[in-house]
């Protein structure tokens, strides 16, 4: 089977243009998944057309690394929707997402995946459909329930990065503990009105606890979030995920980036580890 795949990929036209139609055709002929076809193609220096404009910012080895990567996104609301959209377009090979909620009309102001016709439908279902439409090469695991450290042991064991797109203090602290127990870096994001924050916490670090510990019951009356606050913070989170996987650039470790879209400023504050 592999021999046939290699033979088919040997067609010199693919080095110029390797489209999704080509991939589907090869997958159909060989029985391999799109993910496997892409992996072999990238290994042989063939870049799928939909990743062509990633090249330059990242290289072909890095694109293949993304294909092999596994990222979890906890929450598919304002932040999670945009994060998943971006991870799918970047070409993260396996995305797992959790959300127990369904769309309501008041989500339409900011949640990328929400649509009129989807009101009353589960967010996970919408995200899953969207990912398939954007990037059919991706394996997507959607959990229509709350994230739970015990229940999600198996997925946690293979996760390389987890994105915090939650909306409660309690859940964030629990996620932080789970990530620490499983040795997974966690990319934190939170939003309110015009303001947002991003931070990356590796196992053994404590920014999440420093921000939220002891405030489990905290719930702000003001639950407003503007769409650009959500999309900006989600984009910053996606950039952190990419850099963690590729081991490149600078990360917001023991730091918090605070964004104020009203004053148009961004500030990075050091949060030294509490000994």
């Amino acid at each position: 089977m592999k021999k046939k795949l290699l033979e088919l990929l040997n067609d010199s036209k693919y080095s110029l243009s390797f489209s999704i139609t080509d991939e589907l055709s090869i997958a159909g002929k060989t029985g391999y998944t799109l993910n496997q076809v892409e992996d072999t193609a990238l290994e042989r220096g063939i870049v799928p057309l939909r990743y062509q404009r990633n090249m330059g910012a990242i290289n072909i080895y890095e694109q293949r690394k993304l294909l092999h990567s596994r990222v979890g996104v906890i929450g598919c609301g304002g932040l999670g929707g945009f994060v998943i959209e971006e991870l799918a377009r970047l070409g993260i090979g396996e995305i797992s997402a959790w959300d127990y909620d369904y769309f309501q009309e008041h989500n339409l102001n900011r949640q990328l995946m929400s649509e009129f016709r989807l009101i009353g439908h589960s967010k996970i279902e919408a995200v899953s459909r969207r990912v398939r439409r954007i990037n059919p090469g991706i394996e997507f695991n959607g959990m229509y329930r709350e994230f739970n450290e015990k229940e999600d042991k198996e997925l946690l064991n293979k996760m390389q990065v987890i994105v915090d797109a939650l909306d409660s203090v309690q859940a964030r602290l629990e996620l932080s503990r789970a990530c620490r127990n499983y040795g997974i870096p966690m990319v934190h994001g939170a939003v309110n009105t015009w303001y947002g924050q991003v931070s990356t916490q590796f196992p053994g670090e404590d920014v999440i606890e420093q921000i939220y510990a002891g405030k489990e019951k905290y719930r702000l009356d003001e639950r407003s979030v503007l769409v650009f606050t959500a999309s900006l913070v989600a984009s910053l989170q996606a950039a952190e995920v990419l850099k963690i996987i590729l081991n490149r650039g600078n990360l917001l470790r023991q730091k918090i980036m605070l964004v104020d879209m009203l004053s148009m400023d961004m500030e990075i504050i050091d949060i030294p580890k509490n000994d």
């Binding site: 929450g75 609301g77 304002g78 932040l79 999670g80 915090d164 797109a165 939650l166 909306d167 409660s168 203090v169 964030r172 994001g189 939170a190 939003v191 309110n192 303001y195 947002g196 924050q197 921000i211 939220y212 405030k215 905290y218 719930r219 702000l220 639950r223 979030v225 918090i256 605070l258 504050i269």
Partner: peptide, 10 residues
């Protein structure tokens, strides 16, 4: 003196 509230929405 710098004061940060616990922004927690998602």
């Amino acid at each position: 003196l710098a004061i940060f509230p616990p922004v927690a929405g998602g």
